[in-house]
Design a protein around this nucleic acid. Structure first.
Lengths: 339, 339
DNA sequence: CTCCTAAATGATAGCGCTGTCATTTGTCAA
DNA sequence: TTGACAAATGACAGCGCTATCATTTAGGAG
């Protein structure tokens, strides 16, 4: 293995000082074009790659953008991650993912570790950090974007949407489509799920349609299986229900499968609405209504905001609301019959 | 923001030299118990966290384990990732994921970047790296585990299973269950998909059941939608088919939805078999047969192998075959009728 | 020409830690 | 008590880069 090429090797070969090479690489515009090109040629010829550890030590700043998410398997976050990776991979910045497993304390622990490494930027999920976490982040001198939801009082920047509004919109959709006995299925009550539920509740209450027996929740994480089980549980409790809003698409698919098994007609006997609008919703049988969210775009946007802030660009919008759309499909297209 | 606590701060407070603190943290056993405890107390009190950049620079070795995977959204890899994160998060090592997007050249590029950072270890997907990548990895002086599949000639270590055997086993299962006109649906023909197809082909050929018109492939990435479309395509081409083996579970679910729409009876008119045995397969209607693979365990195992090797432990088994199981469910449980 | 200013380049000193070798301390046999 | 050897600890240099300040060069104005 040939000895590692260092900055000084490049400098020597190009006939300039080390610091000039350093500058040519980091801020080309402050080096004269002639020198810049000569250096670039040598860099290419020798295959020089800067040592990130040395850079970090000397500049007290790494090229790492930390990302804290609650799950590395949940579709919602992997979609966001894809957007983050896609945006970061054309730059010199590396993404480092921390998995908080829906624990605010684990988030705090990871935050400490990340911050001790002087990250270039940080992307964290949600707006419900612990007091300590918030303090840590306020003291941090790197750009920070909170993703997944919006709120007032951002730590620095935010990209997301209102989960409360989304839950309310789903409820309104069901009511407009003629459903009256609307159940709500929710797994893993993370803060965002709770806000969607709150939005749902506020709407059904206002319409005089609220009924606590129609709420099914569990701390287990969401899955298709869970959708089946929740359906069974609800139906064992009451048959007086004509629709289900699911806090996640996989639950909705589970409800659909269970309905098929029990020969419950969707959408006539039971309307189904999911959340996130995963790809499969459109091709299910029948196609399932869902609330579309913009997960990949959220990742892209958040990353761009961090990178812009690192570059010192002024932040036009510190809070970006990406919105959502209720995509009404056949699963909530009820025939004309008494409500 | 209080000044960062350094090693020397701890050393001073504990009344020892810096190097002793360094040793107490990295190799506690070579420091006397009394001193070790005194140092640990000071570390806790001051909240000292070592600077990874300085460590990396001084020791020419980072605490980063690089992971190269083709996709950050594909379920298969996110499950593996979960195993990797779970195993790594109890250690001082950080995971850094590189997304090759199924491109061997991108993989090579990322490999160069990763290796230039002197990673503690590397986990790469598959066994089909470019010549250059292989050379780079052979020259690297860190442990490397290839995951997802097995083969002879590992670069260093391997954890996976034989995709060819898995494809063959699925084919055998269908034949045993009485299917004779067995189609094969495959998206994104990555090397592993191709090997599963090859295993399938070898079995149907041996049984005299091979028919090229029953092969449906596409470079598009797999999805439920794709399963629907492939079903339509196949049926527009021929109706002489009694089963489908899908190279991915989401395709299988798509086939199921399309069958439901077309009122094709599963399993009597068409048997369906997926691959990976995602959670939803067991609760679909009817439950879908699939080939179960051990993705999370693969991630855990690979990470443990890397960590053990870093720690200098002898490698008991450099090649670990995790196997697979055909989980026969109702979707391939055909009633008694002429084949 | 000279002087002044800005642009370009360089010299120097670390960043916080660990590798290496040197020194001190402790233990035990003779 | 002494010497030999291992265990424990320390001194020092330097990993590869960049921040900071110093110096040189270029480009006009007068």
């Amino acid at each position: 293995m040939p000895r590692k090429i260092r900055l000084t090797d490049v400098a020597e070969a190009a006939g300039v000082s080390a610091i000039t090479v350093s500058r040519a690489l980091r801020k080309p515009e402050i080096v004269s074009p002639a020198v810049r090109e000569r250096i670039q040629a040598v860099v290419d010829r020798l295959g020089y790659v800067p040592d990130p550890a040395a850079r970090a030590l000397a500049s007290a700043r790494t090229n790492v953008v930390g990302v804290l998410i609650p799950s590395v398997t949940n579709n919602v976050f992997t979609d966001v991650l894809r957007g983050i990776y896609a945006t970061a991979e054309t730059t010199d910045f590396r993404i480092q993912v921390g998995n908080t497993r829906y624990s605010l304390l684990e988030e705090e622990r990871l935050l400490r570790i990340f911050l001790s490494q002087r990250p270039a930027g940080l992307i964290v999920s949600g707006i419900d950090q612990t007091e300590t976490s918030v303090t840590l982040m306020r003291q941090a001198d790197c750009p920070i974007v909170q993703i997944m939801e919006t709120g007032d009082r951002p730590i620095d920047m935010m990209v997301g949407f209102s989960h409360r509004d989304a839950g309310a919109a789903a409820a309104r959709h069901m009511i407009e489509r003629g459903y009256r006995r609307i159940a709500f299925f929710s797994a893993r009550m993370d803060p965002r799920s709770q806000r969607r539920l709150a939005g749902f509740v506020s709407v059904v209450k206002a319409a005089g349609l609220d009924d606590e027996t129609l709420l099914v929740t569990t701390p287990r994480s969401s899955s298709v299986t869970l959708g089946c089980e929740m359906t069974s549980e609800l139906l064992s409790r009451t048959s007086n229900v004509d629709a289900v809003i699911c806090n996640n698409d996989d639950i909705a698919v589970g409800v659909l499968f269970e309905c098929q098994r029990r020969r419950i007609a969707v959408p006539d006997d039971l309307g189904i609405c999911g959340f996130n609008d995963l790809e499969m919703m459109a091709v299910a049988n029948p196609p399932l209504t869902s609330v579309r969210t913009h997960r990949e775009e959220m990742g892209r946007r958040a990353t761009r905001m961090v990178l812009d802030a690192i570059a010192g660009a002024p932040i036009a919008e510190p809070i970006v609301d990406l919105g959502f759309e209720v995509i009404g499909r056949e699963s909530t297209r009820r025939g004309e019959r008494p409500a």
